[in-house]
């Protein structure tokens, strides 16, 4: 069920991109999301694509794996392309069929917008493919650190995120177990009338909620027993180390922004 979806799936490795500080990767991706909108002509899109492909190549993740992950969004890209193809009425008419006309501007817009969308997804996927969820959490906690002064519970939020990540596999296992137990009592999870389907879902969700509450309660007790009393006075085992490599990647991203700004029309 989760096998086709690569968004959020980490691929272990030791490439340059894997070794980047998660804060650097978060900042780059965040900046990239804004930078993408600077591109508006053939030259700028070429530069942007080059940068993105080099970044992806550096991750050493097999192209086939990345492509497989992009497949599910291809129809969205195609739809965007068609939409622009038919709706944009700029430049010369290239093709006419009855009341439909395709303009040169439409083709250009269609290609640009779908390319932009693809590049965005590719870049954000790179973040999750090369960074473990817990590293992302550490990065977010560190970047949001200054907000602690404004009484934003950054530490608590990060801990919540980390614990959720820790329990995802446990809950998936639990879900499967409950589904099997209910299937043994004649529940059909694969079909049936609407009312039967509702009943099936209820027979799965109620036990799942109850056991999750119990887990949460026991976990809270265990955490208290292990001396947890909030973020105050706590040291951290997971440490992020900012390296020259991280700075150089940030600089490269800044250069990209500058270049696009100069070359855009």
């Amino acid at each position: 069920m989760t096998n086709n979806l690569i968004i959020g799936q980490y691929v272990p490795g030791h490439s340059l991109i894997h070794r980047l500080d998660p804060r650097a990767k978060l900042l780059i991706v965040f900046a990239y999301v804004l930078i993408v909108f600077l591109a508006n002509n053939v030259v700028t899109y070429t530069v942007l694509s080059l940068f993105t492909f080099v970044f992806a190549a550096l991750s050493r993740i097999p192209l086939s794996f990345i492509m497989r992950g992009l497949k599910p969004i291809l129809w969205v890209v195609l739809f965007t392309m068609l939409l622009h193809l038919f709706m944009t009425k700029e430049g010369d008419v290239v093709y006419r069929l009855g009341t439909f006309s395709i303009y040169e501007g439409g083709i250009r817009q269609g290609i640009f917008i779908s390319l932009r969308f693809l590049l965005l997804v590719l870049m954000t996927t790179m973040l999750t493919l090369t960074t473990t969820p817990i590293e992302v959490t550490d990065g977010v906690e560190s970047l949001l650190g200054p907000l602690k002064k404004m009484r934003v519970p950054v530490h608590e939020l990060a801990l919540m995120m980390a614990i959720s990540l820790r329990f995802i596999p446990t809950l998936m296992e639990e879900t499967e177990k409950i589904m099997k137990a209910q299937a043994a009592r004649g529940v059909d999870f694969s079909g049936g009338r609407f009312s039967e389907r509702v009943k099936a879902i209820v027979s799965l969700l109620v036990p799942l909620f109850i056991s999750s509450f119990k887990r949460a309660d026991e976990l809270a007790t265990a955490m208290e027993a292990r001396g947890y009393r909030g973020g105050e006075g706590r040291t951290k085992f997971r440490q992020l180390v900012w390296k020259p490599l991280d700075t150089s990647f940030l600089v490269a991203t800044a250069l990209l922004a500058a270049l696009l700004f100069l070359l855009r029309s």
Binding site: P133, A162, L219, A222, M223, K236, F237, R238
Partner: peptide, 17 residues
């Protein structure tokens, strides 16, 4: 329900932290 960390070392570190 007492394993807090995402890995063994993180979990052992929890009480130390």
């Amino acid at each position: 329900n007492q394993f807090v960390g995402t890995t063994v070392e993180d979990d052992i570190a929890f009480a130390l932290e």
